[in-house]
Design a protein around this nucleic acid. Structure first.
Lengths: 247, 247
DNA sequence: CGCACACTTGAGTAATGTCAAAGAGTGTGG
DNA sequence: CCACACTCTTTGACATTACTCAAGTGTGCG
């Protein structure tokens, strides 16, 4: 089976060399669900995939709409959020390259999603994706793993929202971004913030003003430096980690 | 295959009539993972199950410990929580009959769990449970569904913790318990609160005092009545629902 | 009966939110 | 290339919600 698979790959790549499979060439693949599919079966995945380019500020998933598609972010930053009827917003998470969106297998989307930067992603029709699950149980296993991680992240975030001070929230946020960037091959120290202060506030359960004040306070206390816009230098990372003792 | 299965059940039940299978007789089964296993295969599940009786206040899962077991609550109330190093506590959820604990397939428990009342549950060794997943793909599908629901609940709770007022948090909490009770065959109106005010506070991201004050305020405003301890009468349910417009 | 423990209530405080305005940065069109 | 308009960010003054500390009142259990 494995060798037959290898053969198939060979013939496939020699036949379609000039039209590279989007999935086989995808840099984000190792980070995401698609890694659960062997090279030889990637064409089946590619067949139901449509690559999407999403402009900044575009809302491409709306809470309550029928959950027709699943997404896999391959580039850019997405904010996932819920709204209260009066407009109060809570961002439940930010997605980066490799992150999966639409995990819930409910009928309708539970959250909205908006492109914070220009975003590139792969879109799968939910029905066809679900059909693949029966043929590739590895995907299901992988989805369960992703769900586990998301759940763990959600729990951490509940602690932040329910019990941490503004200062702790902001420093936790910075460390999270730093670690996340390092994990996916980026740089840990100058942390890039693609989102606005308002987005950060809506993620941390604060107001813009409080977030801004906390940044300046952290700067004054020598934890961070704010040189260019959208970039935070962690001048004293160990001290910053102490603020978050154990997270 | 189906008919062979039915036979097996028959011979099994006739042979062991005096020792009822814990799983086949389980009232909570329809609510939980175990429902994904056909009657005929329940003996395999029963073989790895040990029924546990847990005393009030006993901590039976500790954050960071190796995740050796999974649990299925069949009776009582469990609080699932995380601690900050200085003792601040955030309860991430309450579990009732039919709820599953230990969903995360990470190496270690992400949260601690404590029995709020006397609790009865089924315990499965994680390794043996994982082995069953390959034979019964239905369980995996079911777990994914459970994970989806938990994730949706976690997202709702993030909105509560990040953006709602004390009054909204408490009324959301009461409605949640009411609906939950109704869904699992209980009574919707007099809501039973098995947990202390402190637990409610730790769940809602408030202090005991604020929770208590909010209860008296809701009472004074005619939304609820507090007659016996641990029981809340929802005197004006529609108005209470208005407080939570759309949740 | 008495001791915990849980709950309520009060008074004062601190942290964060609100409202307002000014400064900085960014992009667009003239 | 500059000027204008826009948004984002920062800062200040003030308001308010929820927290802290403290005391008092049940309530259940040994």
């Amino acid at each position: 089976m494995k060798s037959a698979c290898a053969q198939q790959v060979q013939s496939l790549s020699s036949g379609k060399e000039l039209l590279p499979e989007p999935c086989a060439a995808c840099a984000a693949r190792v980070l995401s669900v698609c890694d659960a599919i062997d090279d030889c079966d990637l064409d089946r995945l590619a067949a139901i995939t449509s690559v999407q380019d999403i402009a900044r500020h575009q809302i491409f998933v709306t809470e309550g709409d029928p959950a027709d598609h699943l997404f896999n972010v391959t580039d850019g930053t997405v904010k996932v959020y819920k709204l209260l009827p009066d407009g109060r917003q809570q961002i439940t998470g930010f997605l980066f390259a490799g992150d999966f969106l639409g995990l819930s297998f409910l009928e309708r989307y539970g959250c909205s999603a908006e492109a914070v930067t220009r975003v590139r992603c792969c879109r799968f029709p939910r029905k066809q994706f679900a059909a693949m699950l029966t043929d590739f149980p590895g995907i299901e296993r992988r989805l369960l793993g992703i769900a586990s991680n998301e759940l763990a992240a959600a729990q951490d975030h509940m602690v932040l929202l329910g019990r941490k001070t503004a200062r702790e929230r902001v420093s936790t946020f910075l460390l999270m971004l730093s670690r996340r960037a390092a994990r996916s091959g980026g740089t840990a120290d100058p942390v890039i913030l693609p989102m606005t202060r308002t987005d950060i506030a809506d993620y941390l359960g604060l107001t813009v003003e409080t977030v801004s004040r906390t940044f300046t306070q952290l700067k004054k206390d020598g934890f961070i430096e704010l040189r260019e816009a959208g970039v935070v230098h962690l001048s004293n990372l160990p001290a910053l980690e102490d603020l978050n003792e154990g997270f």
